[in-house]
């Protein structure tokens, strides 16, 4: 059974665990470097990116997660998780994990009163997928190896670069499992490659 970790320092952890388990994988809450062992994939959930960063630093999780990324383990970041993955954050000097070749802007759709939900089509995933945007970031620029999977109002809101999947919105707040399923397929392919 595939083991998918969820960074569990703060934020929407429970929702991801539910989706991962519904798709027949084992979900592991990650609170320390110990918990990263033998993971086939890692989810970085929504929450407050500034809070998560402080806690990542304090518990020395940044380097172990970067090492996991360097080892090719697939990672899926939603909202704050996307901000953690990005190589560059508009208005900030340094990134967090800085592993995915995208530039993101925080709170780029406005404050909470501007938060919204919409149905959209996602390349390789499907149509009419409910997407919940909460004080969401978006991808301002993407490197040449980044595949753009979805846009909303001309802004990139879902993209993949090899092992990394970065998402502005929150598939975990809906009953629709298709985006998570897409990520688990990424994990499965990667695990099969390693096995051969």
């Amino acid at each position: 059974m595939l083991k998918i970790g969820i960074l569990a320092l703060q934020g929407a952890v429970r929702e991801h665990i539910r989706q991962i388990e519904e798709l027949g994988c084992r979900a592991i809450s990650v609170k320390s470097a110990e918990d990263l062992k033998e993971l086939n994939g890692l989810v970085l959930p929504g929450g407050e990116s500034t809070t998560m960063r402080k806690l990542l630093d304090r518990y020395e999780l940044l380097e172990p997660i970067r090492a996991l990324a360097a080892a090719g383990v697939p990672m899926f970041g939603t909202c704050a998780g996307l901000i953690l993955l990005a190589k560059e954050i508009v208005g900030f000097d340094t990134p967090h994990l800085g592993v995915m070749d995208v530039v993101v802007e925080r709170n780029s759709f406005g404050r909470q009163v501007d938060s919204f939900e919409v149905e959209m089509s996602i390349r390789g995933v499907g149509k009419d997928i409910p997407a919940v945007f909460i004080r969401a970031p978006h991808i301002v620029a993407a490197g040449e190896n980044v595949e753009i999977l979805a846009k909303h109002e001309e802004r990139i809101v879902l993209a993949r670069e090899g092992q990394f999947l970065g998402c502005s919105f929150h598939p975990e707040l809906t009953e629709d499992l298709r985006v998570m399923k897409y990520f688990i397929e990424m994990v499965r392919e990667n695990t099969n490659v390693l096995a051969h």
Partner: peptide
Amino acid sequence: QVGTERVKRGMAEMQKGG
């Protein structure tokens, strides 16, 4: 759609553990 129940409750979900 703005201000839906999912958007409003979801905002609080993001604060969990904080």
